[in-house]
Each structure stands twice: as C-alpha cells, then as structure tokens.
Design a protein around this nucleic acid. Structure first.
Lengths: 278, 278
DNA sequence: CTTCTCTAGGTACAGCGTACGTAGAAGCTT
DNA sequence: AAGCTTCTACGTACGCTGTACCTAGAGAAG
C-alpha cells in the first residue's frame, strides 16, 4: 500500500476518444506528459490530500465547509443543504466549493465524519462490556437527536472517515473481552449502529408532523377495524399507553446487547437450514 | 374517522386571476358555502380513494404506475425514477401523473407497498417461532435482493400500505406464542426488519463498485497501519477470508431472533441506569 | 338535456448538480 | 528575479428535477 502521498501517477490519460495508446505514445507521455497528472483522482475523499502545497492557499477548509453544511442541515434539514447554500454560507462562489469537494456526495461524507467527531470516547473501555455498550449507545442516540438529519445519512452510506474509524476502533476495544473474532465484532457493530440509527430515525419521522401522525393513527385504526388484520387489531386493543421513548430505547438496546454478547451461535445455525418459502 | 368516501370537494377556486365569478355564482356560492368540503385532502395516499366515480375513467391505475416505476428502478436505480420517466413509460403526459400521485413521495409509497406485495405469506404460522422468523427473514432478503433500491426506501420512510400491513399482521401472528405484549412485538418487528434491510443495503453498496471497493480496502489497510487504530489493525490482522454473505446473514439473523425471543428484560434494565458520557 | 366534476396534458418556473473556461495568485525551478 | 507551473476563485450555462397553474374536453349526475 502506498503511503498517503502519491502525487505523480502518470496513468493513462482518461481514455481519449481515439484509443491510440501504443507503447510509443506511452513512452512519449512519460517524457513530456501531455496531461501530467491527469485522472486517477481517488473517488474516496479521504484519499485525496486536503492540500498539496502548490498554488495560493485556500480560503476555506474541509472542516469549515462541513461545519457550515451542518449548521444548515440542523436548521432546515438535509434537503436545504445544496452546494449553492453552503457556498453562500461560506461567502464563496458556488463553484469554488468544488475545489474542496469534488462531488456533493463528498460533502455528505464530510458532514458524516464531522458528526462522528462529536463522540467523546473514553480513552479506555472499563472492561464491563455491557455497561460500555450501553453508555456508547446513549451517547450515540444523543448525537443523533442533536442532528436530525444524521440517521438518514448514516443509513444511506457506509461512512468511513478518521472519526468514524476512531469510533470503530473504540467499539472493537469495548467488545474485545467477548473473545469474538474481529469479523464477528464488526458485524456486531453494524447491528448496534443500525439499531440506534433506526430508532433515532423513527423518532424523527414520528416527531415530524403531528397532523401526519393523527392521519396515520386514524388510518391504522380504520385498518384494524376492517377485519383484514386481526392480529394488528388485537395488538391495538391490548396496547397500553404510548410508552416513553427512552424506556423503549433502553429495552430494545438491552436486547441488542444481549444478542451481541450471546455465544457465537449456541449449537448450530437454525436459520441456515431453512430456505425461503416462495 | 370518516368513511373512505368523500367525493364532493369543489374546493375553492384558488385565486383565479380573472374574477369570473358571476353574481349568479356568488349567490349560489353563498347559499352553499364557498368551500363545502374544502381542502383537507389527506396527506396519506392510502386515505385518498383511488377513484371517486365522477368524471371520465382514468387511463391508468396506482398498480400500473407503481409497476412502471419499479421496472425503471430495477433497471436503472432509484434516481432514474422521475415523474417524467414514469409518465413516459406509461405513455402519459408528465403532469397527468399528478392526478394519481399528488406528490412524488406518494409514488415512492406506492412502489414500497407494491414490493411488499411480493411476499407470499403462509396462511398460518407453523407455531415454531424461530423457524417462522428465519423463513420470513430469508424471504425478505430475497425480495430486497430482487429490488436493489428497496432497502434505501424502507429505511427512509415508515411505509404502511395494505401489503405492508399484511406483513405486519403476519409477523404479529408469528410472534404471538412468545406471549410478549403487542407493543413489544412491534418493536421486535422493527428490529427484525431493520436488520435485514441494513444487511441488504450493505450488500448493495458492496456490490456497487469493484473499483470503489478496492480503494476502500486500500484506505482501510493504510489506516490500520497508521497506528492510530490499534484494535482495527488487530481485527484486520486476525481476519479470516471474506466470509460468505449468506452465512454471515444466517449468523446475524440467528442473533436477532435470539434477541427477540429473549424474556422481556431478564432482571432490570441495564442500559437504563447508565447515562451518556459527554 | 344541462351541469359540473373529473381527466389529460402543455407551459413555465425555480432550483438543483456540475462541466467548462477564464483570470490571477503563489510556489518551484532556473 | 524571471519564468513556469499549478493551484484557487468564480461566472456562465446546460440539462434535469418537482410541480404550480391553465386549458380543453370526457362523461356521470341531476
């Protein structure tokens, strides 16, 4: 693996329409490269150096751009985050943003990792796996609640950046005492993250509109009473009060942690033997 | 809750630029209030009747519209599904679509429920909760794999429609033997669904680009070797072969089912006692 | 019949991501 | 210091999006 600097990579010049890539041309290209460092810019933004040190110094930074975007998203939602809006918030021209962020996707990556930077992870796990995971889960939910747009983003894209990796590393440290192999602990993290994310997202959509909520309740009760969904109707009938979201979170989080800490598939895989019906 | 028919909604003329309200009209309007059943069109598409029975009969149906959209999404991804594209696929004018689908959101709702209609649920659960859930999970994964755009949609919006409700009802029936109350079984369903969804989505993004994949692996190993993420590095070092996705699914699904079937929080909630660090 | 609602569809607009080109600043080489 | 090179900043422009609004005309209700 190359180290983080790989500035000169005289690869092929991005498929010029005529495929005249003879060995001679290649030699020529090495002598005097018509396009010195043409394409091959990594798609992953974390692989692109933020600054190469040549031309004039940039007026902004990835951090400040991410921060500006997050301010907008916090205030007006993710849809309000457009390249124009962010650029304007920075006092820059729209297209100047593209010097920092080659695609809008990358702006989202920056936002994601900036949010992941809000964790204040303890330097060392306590050794009590359950307690550490529970604490981590609550921290995570707090961050998600602070940034209503975050769950959707996390669910949509993998999201690795320095801060996300720090989180991953911490999670692996926390779960080390389980004795599970690395891969299984990564799967556990996916489950853990995924659960919290979805919980937060559900909270968001639920909080989004009271009117919408009312409509939906009406629709559901109507559906329940239609007789087509007997079990749903029964669940409705025996349902207690709406339940405190924090309690519901704790309850489900407990179950998730339990699943993570369970021995690596007690006897033999059950679901592996069963195949789908249709 | 009004019954599902609310046919007559003459709506207010919505500020016509020309006040072509003849005195006759006004008199009439005063007799019968200008907005008899004015707007109040439900936001939820399932609460809008598909057909009111008045004017000419529509040339299309919600089902055919959803089907056309799904064809496009299957072939070219969710981003390719635009109102224009769907309308063109139906041989209709763009704006005609809006007679069936007041907002694009609703088109997505239709797609979601059409996909949920692909379940072929057994009429009755077998009574073996674990086996039924495992089978259901595999069916679900198969549907998600058939429609790469589905996981993102399910993760993004609640999604209740006739077919989704049928699925919910079946899940409640399957988990009835656990003795858990209705609310807890709904939470269990959210966990179950969420897990499968995320697994499918992960598969999608992983399969999306080999080049992207290669870049990411390079980045990750580089990060692991940087020394900043010791646990990640160790996990990488001790990692075995990439592991068959089906096996990984079965393994994790087992854990999820285990979490669902666990007694309702053994002693007392653990995570409830612990509060977040920062 | 008349009346009135509904449908189909065109036009138009604001906003989006971003390809491309130009002007000039700043660092490296000589 | 000069010159070359490479970077930054930013305006213009294009194709695309969702959808507000309007006009006709079809067809059920009275």
């Amino acid at each position: 693996m190359p180290s983080s600097k790989s500035p000169s990579s005289p690869d092929q010049p991005e498929q010029p329409d005529q495929p005249q890539l003879q060995p001679q041309d290649q030699a020529q290209a090495q002598q005097q490269p018509t396009r010195p460092t043409p394409p091959e810019a990594p798609e992953l933004i974390w692989l692109r150096p933020e600054r190469t040190g040549r031309g004039p110094r940039p007026a902004h930074s990835r951090d400040s751009i991410a921060a500006a975007a997050i301010v907008i998203a916090d205030a007006e939602g993710l849809d309000a985050v457009s390249m124009r809006r962010v650029a304007a918030a920075l006092g820059a021209g729209t297209m100047s943003l593209y010097n920092y962020v080659p695609k809008k996707e990358h702006l989202l990556d920056l936002m994601l990792d900036a949010a992941a930077g809000e964790y204040r992870l303890p330097p060392e796990p306590t050794g009590d796996v359950r307690a550490d995971l529970a604490s981590l889960g609550h921290t995570q939910l707090a961050i998600f609640r602070r940034h209503p747009w975050l769950p959707a983003l996390v669910l949509a894209r993998p999201g690795i950046g320095p801060n996300a990796l720090r989180y991953t590393d911490y999670f692996l440290a926390v779960t080390a005492p389980t004795g599970l192999p690395g891969g299984a602990r990564m799967e556990a993290m996916a489950m853990f993250n995924g659960f919290i994310c979805q919980f937060a997202q559900y909270e968001q959509t639920a909080a989004a509109g009271a009117k919408w909520q009312a409509e939906m309740i009406g629709y559901l009760t109507q559906a329940a009473m239609s007789g087509n969904y007997p079990n749903l109707a029964q669940a409705f009938a025996t349902a207690g009060p709406p339940a405190d979201p924090d309690q519901a979170f704790d309850r489900s989080l407990d179950r998730v942690i339990l699943a993570i800490l369970a021995p690596p598939t007690g006897s033999q895989s059950l679901s592996g033997e069963i195949r789908r019906t249709p």
